[in-house]
């Protein structure tokens, strides 16, 4: 078990190094930040001075080593565009994105599992049919369109919810939260639904398929034959057996939610790291892009690690004799 965890951690570090290389390559190959930052009128001397200050004149390998050393300490340099430390920028924006991702992820998981179980247990009911049809829309409509449609219906026509921004925020230590104010909570509803809808339908369809599969299994038949209640059979015996694949997908989707919040944040003018990234792309603000890339990779790697460890908690077959087992 410990050897397994260590092995996974080493793998994770390797993945992060590769990502670091890609991030670092951005500095070399994506445009010339100096030209973007200084404009047409700057003199050659000014350009060289800026290059020096940004460390762009050092040999590549030195730059890379320095990049990794600094990145490991959370230092990604200074934003070309905003002239602020990148880490500070990201940390100030991160709470907004994490709150959005957490709310929509929870929404997606709870509703996804709930609807998935319901539609599996009531396969022929009209409500199941309705849910399945709506879920098809959730899977096939692109996120930005859903966002725009929601804004149109709930913000423009019904005027129930705000169409953009985060509302009022409160600082709790270093964390700037919008969840403690009325307008903050109202503001998060539409973006959270937009971001979570696709994930919800995905989880729902997965839970439904797995559940149907498990309900056909012999141990469910045997559990019924022993006279256990439907509740015990469905939720005690069946649901738990569907969880391994569901945990995998949900974990990976949580990473995607954070990573692909970019579109939702853009549509709703949500002041998170996704919006920061989009602005950085427009200005070729490479330190921010590189840091964002590393951050997202880190989140994915950590989630994957946690997911792998969760398997052990759910499935006893994985706990013993890994070497002897078929897995």
């Amino acid at each position: 078990m410990i050897a397994y965890v260590l092995r996974r951690i080493v793998q994770s570090v390797l993945v992060m190094l590769v990502v670091a290389l890609v991030s670092f390559s951005l500095f070399r190959f994506v445009g010339d930040p100096v030209a973007t930052m200084m404009g047409q009128e700057a003199s050659q001397a000014d350009r060289e001075a800026l290059r020096d200050r940004l460390g762009l004149n050092d040999p590549v390998i030195v730059q890379f080593a320095g990049f990794i050393a600094r990145a490991a300490q959370g230092d990604f340099g200074i934003s070309y565009r905003l002239q602020q430390p990148v880490m500070e920028l990201i940390l100030s924006r991160l709470p907004a994105t994490l709150e959005l991702a957490l709310i929509s992820g929870t929404l997606a998981f709870v509703l996804g599992v709930g609807f998935g179980v319901y539609t599996a247990l009531n396969r022929r009911g009209w409500l199941s049919g309705a849910i399945m049809t709506v879920s098809l829309i959730g899977v096939s409509l692109p996120t930005f369109l859903i966002g725009v449609l929601l804004i149109w219906v709930f913000a423009v026509e019904l005027q129930w919810l705000p169409s953009f921004g985060r509302g009022d925020t409160v600082d709790v230590g270093p964390w700037r939260t919008g969840l403690l104010t009325q307008s903050g909570r109202a503001s998060i509803v539409l973006p959270a639904i937009t971001l979570g809808l696709y994930q919800m339908t995905l989880i729902m369809r997965l839970v439904r398929a797995e559940m149907l599969e498990v309900l056909r299994s012999d141990y469910i038949k045997f559990a019924r034959a022993r006279g256990l209640s439907d509740r015990a059979v469905h939720f005690g015996h069946a649901l738990k057996n569907t969880l391994v694949p569901v945990i995998t997908i949900t974990g990976l989707q949580l990473g995607s939610i954070i990573a692909f919040a970019i579109i939702t944040e853009t549509v709703f003018q949500w002041p998170g790291v996704g919006a920061l990234f989009i602005n950085s792309v427009q200005f070729v603000d490479i330190p921010v892009m590189a840091a964002y890339l590393m951050l997202i990779a880190l989140i994915f790697v950590v989630i994957n690690l946690v997911v792998d460890l969760l398997y052990y908690a759910v499935d006893p077959r994985l706990r013993v004799d890994r070497a002897a087992a078929r897995h």
Binding site: S217, A225, G227
Partner: peptide, 25 residues
Amino acid sequence: MRKVRGKRIGMVFQDPLTSLNPLYT
């Protein structure tokens, strides 16, 4: 009927490898 199953009529199935829920002791 659920009170009859298990309590008054027990059942043994064909395949013991799949009759038990793998996630519970």
